[in-house]
Design a protein around this nucleic acid. Sequence first.
DNA 1: TTGAAAACGGAAGAAACGTTCCATTCCGTC
DNA 2: GACGGAATGGAACGTTTCTTCCGTTTTCAA
Lengths: 278, 278
Amino acid sequence: MSDEPTVPRDFEGLKAHLGVAHNALPKRLKQAADFALRHPDDVAFGTVAEIAVKAGVQPSTLVRLAQAIGYGGFSDLQQVFRARLKAGWPDYHTRLEALKAVGPEPHPGLHLHGFSQAAIASLERLGATLDPHRLDAAVDLLAGADTIHLLGARRVFPVTAYLAYAFAKMGVRTQLVDNVGSLGGEQIAAARPGDVVLAVSYAPYTRSTVDLAATAAAAGVPMLAITDSAFSPLVSMARVWLEVAEADYGAFRSLAASFALVMALAVSVGEKREAGQG
Amino acid sequence: MSDEPTVPRDFEGLKAHLGVAHNALPKRLKQAADFALRHPDDVAFGTVAEIAVKAGVQPSTLVRLAQAIGYGGFSDLQQVFRARLKAGWPDYHTRLEALKAVGPEPHPGLHLHGFSQAAIASLERLGATLDPHRLDAAVDLLAGADTIHLLGARRVFPVTAYLAYAFAKMGVRTQLVDNVGSLGGEQIAAARPGDVVLAVSYAPYTRSTVDLAATAAAAGVPMLAITDSAFSPLVSMARVWLEVAEADYGAFRSLAASFALVMALAVSVGEKREAGQG
DNA sequence: TTGAAAACGGAAGAAACGTTCCATTCCGTC
DNA sequence: GACGGAATGGAACGTTTCTTCCGTTTTCAA
């Protein structure tokens, strides 16, 4: 029943396909195809009229090109150019849908796979979006601190707890504000301007973390915030902030990117101090 | 003639702009803005109607948002999201080369990449090696427990700390043996045969974890062990054990696979109890 | 509790878009 | 040099999309 030869749906395949068909194409269609491969970004987001002007052809030529090489229409062809831009971006939701499609009822292996995918997506995204200069600035800030006060509650408490371990291993003095005995306020009150507060919080931002961070900020203690959006209440208090967007699976959010980030921070700060004291 | 305050035309500027303005925005507009920053690729590619559905708002809300923050309309705002993708994601290898190009000596970006790779390797290995039947057995054991006692120290303390959070969210009763006040022995002494001990330990096996696990085992409390080899001292005490081999980067070992595993355990146990109680 | 202003949802309207169609031009062939 | 088919330019069509408008709900202050 497949009466139609399938056409490539990815950009690489399209390039190969066009390479073969190129010589058999009429002049204008060749011109349009040439432009498309040369300016894929313009094709991805432009309208037919806009692209036609840039390519020096008529709008109808673009539609003809798409149909000549087997697509239903220009919009159909354009999807390939858009997919190319998406490709660099791990499309996590697509993966998740694929997971769900395997079987209706959930089971442990499926969940494990799901959480793994969420973790990998988070890590890839972190690598793609984090600004290296901000990361350097964060390391500089932490390296100059006398004591680093670690602030993070509930879901992200494991992150700060790990930081306490990792910094200690690197010879960096920390205070984990764990709020044991409801002494969080007293713990953070020990922070002085020569110190640094490292606060971690993701939406919905835990009240106590935000409050304690505000207390420290009011006391003039510089802050590094690790949070998930520019809307975070921590952003306005922080001297430096790093954005980490973790992927969800079900009701739970990955912590993989957060851990990779703080591990890198801990090692970098340790190295910088080592170098400074060398 | 510039009667209008200029609005950011690049994504970074937009983030900053929204971060400042977000407090003044009404609820729905905030919701839409949040979605936009969280799913920028959806905004870049989608139509107003599609995006509105995903964001859980009306199409008109998206237009209002764009106008509220100074753009002429939604299409105008959308250009910013498209420009972000046009700017071009340097592909994976380019990024890696750029990282290495900074210099031969280690730096934060390189460490971040290293920890990410270690995490991904750990996750992939976990998925490939873990026996699904053992995983099912682990879930069965935990689902039958009255109280789950969580045992894990030093490097893996974050894992058990997270489990305490995750299990609580799933309505499962736990006791985190955190050894606060050196009361670890008393904490684990509360475990009874109807309970289960979930012990996590990797080489070099922390002494106190092994000792506390042994105490519980001697008292006839069944144990699920998460550890890194068949030679682990926990294996002989455990009724069920799961092997997790984390990859190293430098002096630090990833925790990504451990977290993915325990998240899957928590969700599966919660679901199994839900099903059992109908 | 009441009233006014802001925000919201939904549908109608306006604009833009992709596609199709037809007349004209170009090119190879007889 | 004339013919026929393919290719092209340009306009019109129908659909989709964005925007605007208005009645209702919500929110905040008096």
